[in-house]
Amino acid sequence: MAQHRGDLSDAQWQKLQPLLPQPAPTGRPANDHRQVLNGILWIHRTGAPWSDLPERYGSRGTVSSRFYRWRAQGVWQQILNQLQHTADAAHQIDWEVHFVDSTIVRAHQHAAGAKRGIKTQNNRVTTEQLQEQEALGRSKGGFSTKIQIQAEGLGKPMQFVILPGQSHDVKGFDKLNEAAPRIKRKGRGRPKQRPRYLVGDKGYDADSIRRSLRRQHTTPVIPKRKNAKRRPRFNRGLYRERNRIERLINRLKQARRVATRYEKRAENYLAMLTIAAILIWLK
């Protein structure tokens, strides 16, 4: 099959192929993984609906169902974790300093209206609860979703979470911190998980965050707000490197399915974001 713009290169496929689920030994043969993945990447890059998928990638039902099935099975997250593990084994992850930041993406009008699920007389899901559950925030400009992300020192994504657009950075930090991957290293010892320094902007200036970081032996590099009574010194040299995570966010948003949220379900949008992170680790 001829390679088109946005398709996996041979080098990327060589890294990715061993990480994919093996086809079942019995039953109807599954469609080629590479062809289906290229179809998913076409949707991911263009932001088009599944119904517009070009015929060269196969049936839109096959491509979309594999995306949703692998999301439900946790395959996308497993691939990302394995790529990070491989990079760490090759000493390609900087554990000295990590960066944290957030960005807000607009949600398309079709992203609203997720089903509330099963309701009982004593357990009803309100509109506000549903929006919180699906990471949709309402504002004058419409619906939005906030992405909080942590990057390692070389500017590659480590973990991320999504929240309603109006959520404060402090609110989502604990959730982001808990999502840190546990990267098992060769030999004895605990899995590597925490950096020596964590750099964030003034949005993360909170005593609770500083205490949490110190408990895990991480030094916060976070400036105080102007109205703070005490403004201790911080490592300005490391803080100037924060542009690395800002550039990372721009790279993630090159995919239109990330730059604008079209998915009704938060878990599906998170899968699209995970695919964008996988592509960065494959480079």
Results as ranks from 00 to 15, higher is better:
residue 68 Y to W: 08
residue 37 L to M: 15
residue 171 K to S: 13
residue 216 Q to M: 06
residue 85 H to L: 06
residue 110 H to T: 12
residue 9 S to V: 10
residue 273 L to D: 05
residue 16 L to Q: 02
residue 205 D to F: 06
residue 106 R to L: 11
residue 282 L to K: 12
residue 132 E to R: 09
residue 251 R to E: 02
residue 4 H to F: 07
residue 70 W to R: 00
residue 189 G to H: 13
residue 196 R to F: 04
residue 171 K to C: 12
residue 236 R to H: 14
residue 95 W to H: 05
residue 51 S to C: 09
residue 212 S to E: 13
residue 23 P to N: 09
residue 135 A to V: 07
residue 136 L to G: 07
residue 258 V to S: 13
residue 273 L to A: 03
residue 262 Y to D: 01
residue 89 A to H: 15
residue 206 A to L: 04
residue 80 L to C: 06
residue 196 R to H: 09
residue 252 L to Y: 06
residue 246 E to Y: 05
residue 101 D to E: 00
residue 151 A to N: 02
residue 50 W to Q: 05
residue 172 G to T: 02
residue 212 S to K: 15
residue 35 Q to V: 14
residue 129 Q to W: 09
residue 214 R to I: 05
residue 27 G to C: 11
residue 274 T to C: 15
residue 199 V to W: 00
residue 276 A to I: 03
residue 282 L to Q: 04
residue 107 A to I: 00
residue 79 I to H: 04
residue 210 R to F: 02
residue 64 S to V: 03
residue 263 E to H: 05
residue 269 Y to A: 04
residue 34 R to P: 06
residue 179 A to V: 06
residue 134 E to P: 07
residue 64 S to N: 13
residue 98 H to E: 00
residue 96 E to S: 11
residue 266 A to W: 09
residue 118 I to F: 11
residue 240 R to H: 12
residue 250 N to E: 06
residue 266 A to T: 10
residue 197 Y to P: 00
residue 164 P to D: 03
residue 9 S to A: 06
residue 111 A to G: 10
residue 267 E to Y: 11
residue 261 R to P: 00
residue 31 N to Q: 12
residue 13 W to M: 08
residue 40 I to Q: 01
residue 142 G to F: 07
residue 66 R to I: 08
residue 256 R to Y: 13
residue 62 T to D: 00
residue 28 R to M: 10
residue 208 S to I: 08
residue 4 H to K: 09
residue 116 R to S: 04
residue 167 S to R: 11
residue 232 P to W: 07
residue 98 H to D: 04
residue 243 N to Q: 14
residue 133 Q to P: 09
residue 139 S to M: 08
residue 260 T to K: 10
residue 42 W to K: 01
residue 89 A to Y: 04
residue 219 T to H: 14
residue 51 S to W: 13
residue 134 E to A: 00
residue 188 R to P: 10
residue 216 Q to D: 14
residue 241 E to C: 08
residue 271 A to K: 04
residue 274 T to Q: 02
residue 196 R to Q: 03
residue 106 R to H: 07
residue 40 I to N: 10
residue 150 Q to A: 05
residue 15 K to T: 10
residue 258 V to I: 08
residue 222 I to L: 08
residue 266 A to F: 01
residue 214 R to G: 05
residue 47 G to L: 10
residue 205 D to Q: 12
residue 160 F to V: 04
residue 188 R to Q: 15
residue 270 L to K: 08
residue 61 G to M: 06
residue 86 T to P: 01
residue 25 P to G: 11
residue 106 R to D: 09
residue 151 A to Q: 07
residue 107 A to F: 07
residue 131 Q to A: 15
residue 203 G to Y: 02
residue 248 L to V: 01
residue 202 K to D: 00
residue 99 F to W: 01
residue 278 I to F: 03
residue 45 R to P: 03
residue 100 V to M: 01
residue 41 L to S: 11
residue 192 K to R: 15
residue 220 P to G: 00
residue 177 N to G: 01
residue 137 G to P: 01
residue 91 H to E: 13
residue 183 I to G: 11
residue 155 G to W: 01
residue 186 K to V: 13
residue 242 R to Y: 07
residue 140 K to A: 14
residue 229 K to Y: 05
residue 6 G to L: 08
residue 157 P to E: 12
residue 19 L to H: 01
residue 212 S to M: 15
